[in-house]
Design a protein around this nucleic acid. Structure first.
Lengths: 201, 201
DNA sequence: TTCTCAAAGATAACGATGTTACGAAACGTC
DNA sequence: GACGTTTCGTAACATCGTTATCTTTGAGAA
């Protein structure tokens, strides 16, 4: 008896996709309910029925970013050399950040006033966390639940996060060469130090 | 013949001060032209005459943040032990970030859509840069313009930035003990590694 | 003292945004 | 072909950034 639904999961996916396109092409300022709805061929009311509010839409973008990044990290198959496997993972993160800088900012900065990720939202990064832990454990030859492993993983993730934050802000270096040299030496220093600390204890 | 001016530098300072108060108490969403003007006892037009636009106001907040941080870092007088002097500087940064988390976010995240800092805006951090370079050069016993010094400074700043980003997001650890342990081990690992790299070459 | 007028301030309006109440549209059923 | 229910899009509201407009002010002229 009713008219057929159009505000389905498929439309939700479509709205999310259009939101990310608008985000990458025009920045956070371009992601408005009216524009997103228009791009997806629907109305603002559909956005609010499917996402609750603007924060819900941005939260979905946030989750989608972590899913895409996790997919790329897992696709980076380990080559057997634990050192290179760790570096390759962070290099993949960097490629992702440079390819989708706005999406990366939603994940690690906070370009939308409406949405501040809480502790629960970072559960979206669980798959990435697992992958990092796995490779760091292999790097240090320690157990995946060992404190030293978890601490080392946090140190490396923080270093990567800081380096990418600096690079995306344009303050890590002027030339591509200096940027990559600083990245490489920072990671090398940290990784060698972490290994030495494990061996020494 | 005209009426006396009230839109002076003093009012600009007052508006900036009220903006930061609103920012810290109510987040970025609380910093509106109307509210800032009202708190300072003036009108929105004064905000626009003194700051140009909203981005100009946020830019002033951004600058003020770097000035306050620089003042706190310089006040942290070196004790003679280069290692402890470097750690003390980053500890001071952390105290600042925990005391003014919103201001810190304006400096290193991007909570306002209106203002994205460009390379030129980071000139505001020149004084901090100088202080970091000075202490890192002392740490490594290298020249302040040496590539190794500058690279090491970037690595440490990035590590600090990443650690604080993680901590402020609530993902660095659950207990204060684990957070501080991870900070300490990360910095120790990096600093020891940087020193070893200099000595070894 | 009162009037004038130029400088300076505040008000109010405009477009755009997040959000939602409301009326319009579409389908199976009688 | 009309009805009713479900669903959808439109339009309205409050608020925001922004600026044109109008009001106020106070020293000097009459």
């Amino acid at each position: 008896m009713p008219r057929p639904r159009t505000r389905t999961g498929a439309l939700k996916d479509r709205l999310l996709s259009e939101s990310i396109s608008l985000l990458e092409s025009g920045g956070a300022v371009a992601v408005t309910a009216r524009r997103v709805a228009s791009e997806a061929g629907t109305s603002t009311a559909a956005v609010y029925e499917l996402f609750g509010d603007k924060a819900g839409l941005v939260r979905s973008i946030f989750y989608e970013g972590f899913e895409r990044l996790a997919a790329e990290l897992v696709a980076e198959a380990p080559c057997g050399d634990p050192y290179r496997d760790v570096v390759a993972m962070f290099d993949a993160t960097r490629r992702f950040a440079l390819r989708f800088p706005m999406l990366f900012e939603v994940m690690f900065a906070r370009p939308f006033i409406e949405f501040e990720p809480g502790p629960k939202d970072f559960d979206a990064a669980a798959q990435i966390y697992t992958e990092v832990i796995r490779r760091v454990a292999a790097l240090l030859d320690t157990g995946e639940t060992d404190e030293v492993t978890v601490d080392a993983a946090h140190a490396l993730v923080a270093l990567d996060r800081g380096l990418l934050g600096s690079e995306l802000s344009g303050v890590l270096g002027r030339s591509a060469a200096s940027i990559e040299r600083r990245r490489a030496t920072a990671f090398e220093t940290m990784i060698v130090g972490l290994r030495a600390k494990v061996v020494g204890s």
